[in-house]
Nucleic acid binder design. Structure first.
Length: 801
DNA sequence: AGCACGCCGACT
DNA sequence: GTCGGCGTGCTC
C-alpha cells in the first residue's frame, strides 16, 4: 500500500480521473484516504485528494512521489468520497469540483510560484536579480520585468522555479499567558518590584484577584496592561506565553436564552410519532411535512433533533439562504446551545472554516445552514431536515449543479435515517411523490394558536384602471394602508422587481432601450441615475430624448421597488418606509439592520422583493400588500404558476401571526388565473390538482424528467449548427419515448454578446442518456475549447433562461 | 488549467 | 541562421 490514487485540482475532462503517486517513506502510514495532498503534476505542484491506497500501478515506471499531506486527518470520510463520485456522474461534473463543493472555501488551494537561487557564487548579475536574497516571488519578478532574465538563469542552471501549494485557511491564534506561581511567591515578587514598575504591579494584583490558571492577551490589555510590561513578567518567569487556536465565533456577543421543548398539540404529536419511530429503528424514510405557516413545523424539527442527540447521533438542518436570519438561528441555538454550528454565506471565509471544523471535530452535533451544509462531515447522522423544501435555492446553479434534496436522500440512505422535507407549499414533485407513497406524508392543518389564516382580497387592477384609478395602489389597498398608518400598525408591501422601472420606451416611435450585449431591455435605476442590464452589468446614461427619433416623449414602464418608494412618499408623506432589495442590502449586515429598524417600530411600511417573503414574524404586522401578483407569471418557465402560488401564499402568511388580526391585499391584472385564485383561498390542494393537469398536458415534471443542454458562442450560425448536431446525436442514442425540444433559441437569446441555443430533453426512463451526454462532452471537448464554444448540461434544471 | 514542445514567419 | 508567435497534447 505504498501508492496513493489522487484526484488532482485541474477541472477538465482529460484530468478527471485518478493519478497514481508513490508515498514517500516518511509519510507511510500517515497518508490516508480523504486527505488533501500536494503532488507534482507536470512541472507544477498542485493540490489533490487521496481517494485510495494500493500497492501496484500500471504506471509503475513513471510514478512520482507525492510531496506532502496538507491535512493531519482526512477532510473527506469514506461516505463523502463515495458521494463525490456519485455526484460527479449524476450531475455530469468533474470529481474535483464535487469534492471542493463539499469543503469550506478556505480549503481551496492557492498556488504561488517563486524563483530560488541555486548558484551562490559571486555574481553581481544574480545578486541584482534576486535583490541580494536567495529567492524572489513570481509576482515580484513580474513587476520588475525580470522574468526573461530569470528564465535564462534557469537554463544556465543558476536558478529554479519552486511551486507552493498554500491553503487559504488560517487558524486564528491568540496569545495566552499561564502562570505557575503560587500566591505566596507572587506576593513576594509584588513587594520586591521597584516603585516605577506600576504596570507590572497592576498585572500581578489583577492575577492575584482573578486566581485563574491562564489569561488571554486581550484580557490583560483590557485590564490596562501594556504589551511591554506583560513581556517583562514573562522574562521574570511569572508567565509562560503560548499560542492557542481559537474559533472565530460569529455569535460571540449574543446571549441565547435556553428554551425548553414546548408541549405539542395533538396534531403535532401525531405527526412526530412516525418520525421518532424511524429515528429509533434507524431506518431510511423521507417524510413530507406539509404544514400551513404557523402550524409549528419548527418545534417538530427541534424535538426530532433532540431525540437524535439523545441517541448520540447528529443532525443537519437546511434552511434557504434568505431565511437564515438571526431569528432562525436563535431558535436552534437557544435549544441546543453550543451543539449548533451555523454555515451560511454571510460568514467570512475564516468563520465558515471554523464552524466547519467544529463539526469535523465533533464539537457540534447540529448543523444549521444553507445548501452546502448538506455536506457537513458528520459520521453518524440521525436526521436530515430541509425546511421550505420547495425553495429553488436548494439547487446550485454553478458546477456541480446538484440539488440538496437529492444529496440529502443519498446521505440518509447511507446512514439509514429519516429526511424531513417541510413546507406549506411543497414542490409539485415532492407532493406527487408523497401521493404515490414514495414519501411518507405528514400533515399539519391547524395553526398552533388556532388563528385562522388572514382573509385575502384579490383586486383586479384592470377594473381599477377602468374606474379611473391610475395609481399603483388600488382603492382598497390605499384605504387599508391609511388605516394602518392611523392605528400605528405595520404593513409589508411586496413587489418582485427591483430598480425603478423595468424598461424605457419612446411613445412616438416605440423604441425600447436595450442592452447592446444582451437581448434584454435595460432597467432604469433612479438613485444611481443609470440604465442597467441585470444580466451582464452594462450601464449607461439615462437619455432625455429618444436615441432613435429624438422625441422627448419618453416614458418608463413597469414598476420597481424604487418607484413604489417614491410614490409612497407622495401619497403618504408621513409614512416611514424601509426598502429592502438587492440594492439596499448589498453590504454585510445591512439586511439585519433594516429588519431591526422595522421590528423596533421605527418604520411603518416594509417594502421589498423576494427576500421579505419568508420567515419574518413580527407581531405588529397586520397588513400585507402584493402590488403586482403577476410579474412572475409570464416568465418562460413551466414552474411560473407554482412559483407564483408559493410566493403569494408565503407573503400572505406574514400578516396577523399574533394577537392582532391580519389582512392581505393582492393586486393583479389576471385575477382569473388559478395560481392567484387558489393562493387567495390558501388552497394548496386545489392548486396542486390543477397544476398537475397542466404539467401532464405539457409533459413536464413530475410526469417527465428534464435535462437542458445550452450551447453558446459569439457566432449565431456556429451556435445553431453545433446545437443541431448535438441534438441529433442525443436523439439517435435514446428511445422514441423521450421528447426532444429544440434546438431553439434560449429565452434570453444573447447574453454578453454570446448567442445561446438550447435543447430540452423530456424523458421517463433513459439509462443511456447520461452516458450519451458524457460522450457528447468528451467528443466535443477539444472542439469546444478551440472554437470558444461553451456547453452546459443541467440535469433537472430550475432555471430555464 | 498551465506548461513544454514544436513548427512556421520577421528580424539581428 | 534565430527569436518568438501560439496551435497541440500531456500531466501519474
Amino acid at each position: 500500500m505504498n501508492i496513493a490514487t489522487v484526484i488532482v485540482d485541474v477541472p477538465t475532462l482529460g484530468t478527471d480521473k485518478e493519478f497514481d503517486y508513490l508515498i514517500p517513506e516518511k509519510w507511510k502510514g500517515i497518508i490516508e484516504r480523504g486527505m488533501r495532498v500536494a503532488v507534482p503534476f507536470g512541472p507544477r505542484t498542485i493540490q489533490g485528494f487521496v481517494t485510495g491506497l494500493k500497492s501496484n500501478s500500471p504506471y509503475k515506471d513513471k510514478l512520482k512521489e507525492l510531496k506532502e499531506p496538507l491535512d493531519l486527518t482526512p477532510v473527506l470520510n469514506k461516505e463523502l468520497l463515495e458521494l463525490g463520485e456519485w455526484l460527479a456522474t449524476d450531475t455530469l461534473s468533474f470529481k474535483i469540483s464535487c469534492f471542493q463543493a463539499m469543503l469550506p472555501a478556505a480549503m481551496k488551494a492557492k498556488y504561488e510560484k517563486r524563483f530560488l537561487r541555486i548558484n551562490m557564487e559571486d555574481n553581481p548579475f544574480l545578486d541584482d536579480l534576486f535583490g541580494g536574497k536567495t529567492e524572489i516571488t513570481w509576482k515580484k519578478a513580474e513587476e520588475r520585468n525580470i522574468l526573461p532574465a530569470l528564465h535564462a538563469e534557469i537554463k544556465l542552471g543558476n536558478a529554479e522555479v519552486v511551486y507552493d501549494v498554500k491553503s487559504l485557511a488560517r487558524k486564528k491564534m491568540i496569545k495566552v499567558y499561564e502562570t505557575m506561581m503560587d500566591n505566596e511567591e507572587m506576593l513576594t515578587l509584588l513587594n520586591s518590584l521597584p516603585a516605577n514598575a506600576s504596570n507590572q504591579k497592576m498585572i500581578l494584583e489583577y492575577v492575584l484577584k482573578q486566581q485563574s490558571a491562564q489569561y488571554t492577551a486581550k484580557e490583560l490589555t483590557d485590564a490596562g496592561a501594556p504589551q511591554s510590561s506583560i513581556h517583562g513578567l514573562v522574562k521574570k518567569g511569572v508567565f509562560t506565553e503560548k499560542n492557542e487556536e481559537v474559533y472565530r465565533d460569529p455569535f460571540e456577543h449574543k446571549q441565547f436564552d435556553r428554551t425548553a421543548p414546548f408541549l405539542l398539540t395533538n396534531e403535532q404529536r401525531e405527526v412526530i410519532t412516525p418520525i421518532l419511530d424511524t429515528i429509533e429503528s434507524k431506518k431510511y424514510e423521507t417524510f413530507l411535512l406539509y404544514g400551513v405557516t404557523g402550524s409549528g413545523k419548527t418545534e417538530i424539527y427541534l424535538q426530532s433533533i433532540q431525540k437524535v442527540l439523545d441517541k448520540g447521533q447528529e443532525a443537519i438542518v437546511l434552511v434557504p439562504e434568505i431565511s437564515l436570519t438571526p431569528q432562525m438561528v436563535d431558535r436552534f441555538k437557544s435549544r441546543f446551545g453550543n451543539d449548533v454550528a451555523v454555515l451560511h454565506s454571510g460568514l467570512s471565509i475564516g468563520e465558515k472554516y471554523d464552524e466547519w471544523r467544529k463539526v469535523q471535530r465533533k464539537e457540534a452535533r447540529v448543523v444549521v445552514g444553507a445548501r452546502s451544509a448538506i455536506f457537513a462531515p458528520f459520521e453518524n447522522i440521525g436526521i436530515i431536515i430541509i425546511d421550505e423544501e420547495h425553495e429553488t435555492s436548494y439547487k446550485q446553479e454553478e458546477l456541480p449543479r446538484y440539488h440538496a434534496r437529492d444529496v440529502a436522500i443519498y446521505r440518509a440512505k447511507y446512514h439509514q435515517c429519516p429526511v424531513i422535507l417541510g413546507s406549506a407549499t411543497p414542490a409539485l414533485e415532492s407532493f406527487a411523490r408523497a401521493q404515490k407513497k414514495v414519501y411518507h406524508q405528514l400533515t399539519l392543518s391547524k395553526r398552533m394558536n388556532n388563528k385562522s389564516l388572514p382573509p385575502v382580497s384579490i383586486i383586479d387592477m384592470r377594473e381599477e384602471m377602468r374606474d379611473g384609478n391610475r395609481s399603483m395602489f388600488s382603492r382598497e389597498l390605499h384605504t387599508k394602508l391609511a388605516d394602518r398608518l392611523e392605528k400605528k400598525e405595520q404593513t409589508i408591501l411586496f413587489l418582485n422587481k427591483r430598480g425603478h422601472s423595468s424598461f424605457m420606451m419612446c411613445r412616438d416611435c416605440g423604441y425600447v432601450m436595450q442592452c447592446p450585449h444582451c437581448d434584454i431591455s435595460l432597467t432604469f435605476h433612479r438613485y444611481t441615475n443609470e440604465m442597467k442590464c441585470h444580466y451582464c452589468g452594462f450601464n449607461t446614461f439615462v437619455p432625455h430624448t429618444c436615441p432613435e427619433c429624438s422625441s422627448n416623449h419618453i416614458r418608463y414602464f413597469g414598476t420597481g421597488t424604487q418607484k413604489v418608494e417614491e410614490e409612497l412618499y407622495k401619497v403618504f408623506p408621513e409614512a416611514r418606509v424601509v426598502r429592502m432589495d438587492v440594492d439596499t442590502t448589498g453590504r454585510k449586515g445591512a439586511h439585519e439592520k433594516l429588519l431591526e429598524h422595522f421590528q423596533s417600530g421605527k418604520a411603518d411600511i416594509l417594502l421589498g422583493t423576494q427576500m421579505i417573503a419568508k420567515g419574518l414574524d413580527f407581531p405588529n404586522i397586520t397588513l400585507v400588500g402584493v402590488l403586482s401578483a403577476d410579474t412572475m407569471l409570464h416568465l418562460p418557465d413551466f414552474r411560473a404558476s407554482e412559483k407564483t402560488f408559493q410566493l403569494l401564499t408565503q407573503v400572505s402568511g406574514r400578516a396577523g401571526r399574533h394577537e392582532l388580526n391580519g389582512e392581505v391585499v393582492i393586486q393583479t391584472y389576471t385575477p382569473e388565473h388559478y395560481s392567484i385564485e387558489y393562493a387567495g383561498q390558501q388552497d394548496y390542494d386545489r392548486f396542486y390538482q390543477q397544476e398537475m393537469v397542466m404539467r401532464k398536458v405539457g409533459s413536464y415534471p413530475p410526469f417527465y424528467y428534464l435535462t437542458l443542454i445550452t450551447i453558446s458562442h459569439e457566432d449565431l450560425m456556429k451556435t445553431v449548427s453545433t446545437t443541431e448536431k448535438i441534438t441529433k446525436y442525443v436523439q439517435s442514442r435514446i428511445s422514441d419515448e423521450a421528447i426532444i425540444l429544440g434546438p431553439v433559441a434560449s429565452p434570453i437569446p444573447r447574453i454578453n454578446n454570446r448567442y445561446r441555443y438550447q435543447c430540452l430533453i423530456k424523458y421517463k426512463h433513459e439509462p443511456e442518456l447520461k452516458p450519451t451526454l458524457h460522450k457528447v462532452l468528451e467528443h466535443y471537448q477539444q472542439q469546444f475549447i478551440k472554437e470558444g464554444l461553451t456547453i452546459s448540461i443541467d440535469v433537472n434544471p430550475y432555471m430555464m433562461m
